[in-house]
Simulated scan of single mutants.
Amino acid sequence: MHAMKLVVVTAGLTQPSSTRLLADRLAEAVVRRLDGHEAAAEVRVIELRDLAVDIANNLVTGFPNARLRAAIEAVTQADGLIAVTPIFSGSYSGLFKSFFDVIDNTALAGKPVLVAATGGTARHSLALEHALRPLFAYLRAVVVPTAVYAAAEDWGGGGDPFTDGLGERIGRAAEELAGLLPRSAPRQSPDDRPGGEPGYDEVVPFEQQLAALRPLS
């Protein structure tokens, strides 16, 4: 089974943090859905708090060190991305924005992305739509329709594991991201297939296609 690369970027500043908790729940939900589609994923979590100094140095010097370069490469080479930030002053955190500032603005083109955020109050939930979604639209990523916001009251006291609809939103967003991830098997040559028949990834010359359409004499 071909394993996809799922990278989780979380910008929580404390340890543990509700931002990391939400990121983990989203990753687990995506993996479960992929498993239901008989697909596998390798999950890598990038904690931006551990890279804060590296990101600041990159902004000043223009060059990433080895640790930051590895994180950037993981994000740009991922099949899918989950990006989670705390909301400060009605928008994403400065650390979150700074990380994506040091990534080339064409590197995420066409990449499926699930965006999510945490905050102290539900009043900041629209930051997903007026801040995060435009950011990744500018980077030309493919953002799934459902963005997930978790306020302080979402953690505990409800009927499902994540309370009051958060679990449902996590599941819906995970299903959307899983549906966008590539699940194709590695290419095979004709000799590898039963009977040596051509596969869908082979190109049949136009002349050959045209000859097949001519009536037999």
Score class of each variant (00 low, 15 high):
residue 12 G to Y: 04
residue 126 L to F: 13
residue 51 L to G: 07
residue 11 A to N: 09
residue 16 P to I: 06
residue 117 A to I: 05
residue 107 A to W: 14
residue 84 V to T: 06
residue 92 Y to V: 10
residue 63 F to E: 15
residue 119 G to R: 03
residue 98 S to F: 04
residue 33 R to Q: 12
residue 56 A to F: 08
residue 124 H to N: 14
residue 131 A to P: 03
residue 79 D to T: 03
residue 83 A to M: 07
residue 29 A to D: 09
residue 16 P to S: 05
residue 96 F to E: 00
residue 16 P to T: 02
residue 61 T to N: 06
residue 27 A to R: 15
residue 90 G to L: 08
residue 71 A to H: 15
residue 43 V to M: 10
residue 42 E to L: 03
residue 114 L to R: 06
residue 29 A to Q: 05
residue 35 D to H: 14
residue 45 V to F: 12
residue 54 D to E: 09
residue 99 F to T: 01
residue 50 D to G: 08
residue 17 S to Y: 09
residue 26 L to R: 03
residue 59 L to E: 10
residue 11 A to V: 11
residue 18 S to I: 06
residue 45 V to G: 00
residue 115 V to S: 12
residue 110 G to C: 06
residue 57 N to W: 15
residue 102 V to I: 06
residue 117 A to L: 05
residue 65 N to K: 15
residue 124 H to C: 08
residue 80 G to P: 00
residue 38 E to M: 09
residue 60 V to P: 00
residue 113 V to D: 05
residue 24 D to H: 13
residue 109 A to T: 14
residue 80 G to F: 09
residue 55 I to F: 10
residue 65 N to T: 12
residue 75 V to A: 02
residue 116 A to W: 09
residue 114 L to V: 11
residue 90 G to P: 05
residue 17 S to W: 09
residue 130 H to F: 13
residue 42 E to V: 01
residue 83 A to F: 08
residue 15 Q to L: 00
residue 101 D to K: 01
residue 118 T to G: 09
residue 59 L to F: 05
residue 60 V to A: 13
residue 128 L to T: 11
residue 118 T to V: 11
residue 64 P to T: 00
residue 56 A to C: 03
residue 22 L to H: 13
residue 59 L to Q: 11
residue 134 P to E: 06
residue 44 R to I: 02
residue 100 F to L: 14
residue 127 A to H: 01
residue 119 G to D: 02
residue 79 D to Y: 00
residue 71 A to S: 14
residue 119 G to S: 00
residue 34 L to F: 03
residue 87 I to K: 07
residue 40 A to G: 07
residue 112 P to R: 10
residue 112 P to H: 09
residue 34 L to C: 12
residue 38 E to F: 11
residue 83 A to K: 11
residue 87 I to G: 09
residue 53 V to W: 12
residue 123 R to A: 12
residue 128 L to M: 14
residue 86 P to S: 02
residue 19 T to Y: 00
residue 47 E to A: 13
residue 74 A to K: 04
residue 133 R to D: 07
residue 127 A to I: 01
residue 81 L to H: 06
residue 104 D to I: 08
residue 93 S to R: 08
residue 26 L to A: 02
residue 41 A to G: 04
residue 108 L to W: 08
residue 21 L to W: 02
residue 98 S to M: 07
residue 117 A to F: 06
residue 32 R to D: 08
residue 72 I to Q: 09
residue 17 S to C: 07
residue 84 V to I: 00
residue 98 S to W: 02
residue 125 S to E: 13
residue 112 P to T: 15
residue 44 R to L: 03
residue 37 H to M: 11
residue 51 L to C: 14
residue 58 N to I: 15
residue 23 A to D: 07
residue 20 R to M: 10
residue 126 L to N: 11
residue 80 G to Q: 02
residue 96 F to Y: 06
residue 55 I to M: 08
residue 12 G to L: 02
residue 114 L to E: 13
residue 27 A to T: 15
residue 92 Y to C: 06
residue 82 I to K: 05
residue 132 L to G: 14
residue 93 S to H: 04
residue 15 Q to M: 03
residue 31 V to K: 02
residue 31 V to G: 03
residue 117 A to N: 05
residue 88 F to T: 08
